[in-house]
Design a protein around this nucleic acid. Structure first.
Length: 263
DNA sequence: ATGGTCGGTCCCCGA
């Protein structure tokens, strides 16, 4: 049996609930990492999603950010509900859990990496600091020698071919070389970008801005990623960016990316 | 055609 693991920035779970439920029923992914749920834990529509067979873990806050993990398989342990390394960081951007599989277990994190604009500035410094902490956590996880999937909205455009017009994004926190270097530094530890390993084509996007008719003109960017430890990368069977949800009424500005694993 | 869109909250901020 294979295990499917999806990541989707839903831009408010309450505004998106009908679309999310329809997509879960259609695709039935085993594990789903959500970002920007934009609600507190007690406001999350837990019952509606549990009704579909999912176990639900949320790390929410009022108005902004917020991440969740949905899993058809049992969640053995919620390992972390915040990224270590800064006790003063109160933004809900990280949840990490160990999930049972047919072959053992997989560790999955749902990540909402800071946007970082405007750059330079305080928000950009926060982004780079957060990425350094993520690299430290990612390095720690490699010592466990287990399948790890770090899935989420990284707010990083890794390559020039991951954006319709790189020049239009010059100076933006999503494409700046210091952002890209920080992302590459996590990969250099020994993590694989699932999309680049399984597919790698140019101009395959996961986000299209609501403005300027970006969706209709396919002016998108690839910023939602699955980073894989060697044990997860070895098990990767394929990756799909499902553009269906982005074309619906009341769409999120992101669409889901799904990895399938022999795990 | 030099603007334009969402979502959450509260009269503006974040993306």
């Amino acid at each position: 049996m294979s295990l499917s693991v999806a990541s989707w920035n839903v831009n408010s779970i309450k505004a998106r609930l009908p679309n999310v439920i329809a997509w879960l029923k259609e695709k039935r992914p085993d594990v789903v990492c959500l970002q920007e749920i934009k609600c507190q834990d007690d406001g999350f529509p837990r019952l509606e999603i549990e009704e579909l067979g999912y176990n639900v873990e949320t790390v929410g806050q009022k108005s902004y950010n917020g991440v969740a993990l949905l899993s058809m398989r049992s969640i053995d342990e919620v390992a972390l509900t915040a990224l270590p390394g800064d006790e003063s960081d109160e933004q809900a951007r990280y949840v990490e859990a160990v999930i049972s599989t047919d072959t053992g277990a997989v560790r999955v994190a749902s990540i909402y990496l800071p946007n970082g604009n405007p750059a330079p500035g305080d928000k950009f410094d926060y982004k780079l600091g957060w990425m350094k902490r993520l690299r430290e956590r990612a390095a720690e996880l490699l010592t466990y020698e287990e399948p790890v999937i770090l899935a989420g909205d990284y707010n990083i455009i890794p390559r020039d071919c991951d954006v319709h017009d790189p020049a239009a994004w010059e100076g933006d926190a999503l494409i700046r070389s210091d952002s890209r270097d920080a992302f590459a530094a996590i990969k250099w530890l020994g993590y694989a970008d699932a999309f680049e390993q399984a597919d790698g084509r140019a101009n395959q996007y996961t986000f299209w801005d609501y403005q300027r008719g970006a969706w209709q003109k396919d002016h998108g960017i690839r910023i939602d990623h699955l980073l894989l430890s060697p044990q997860a990368a070895d098990a990767l069977e394929g990756v799909e960016i499902d553009k269906g949800p982005r074309g619906r009424e009341k769409a999120s500005d992101h669409t889901p990316i799904i990895g399938t694993f022999a795990l």
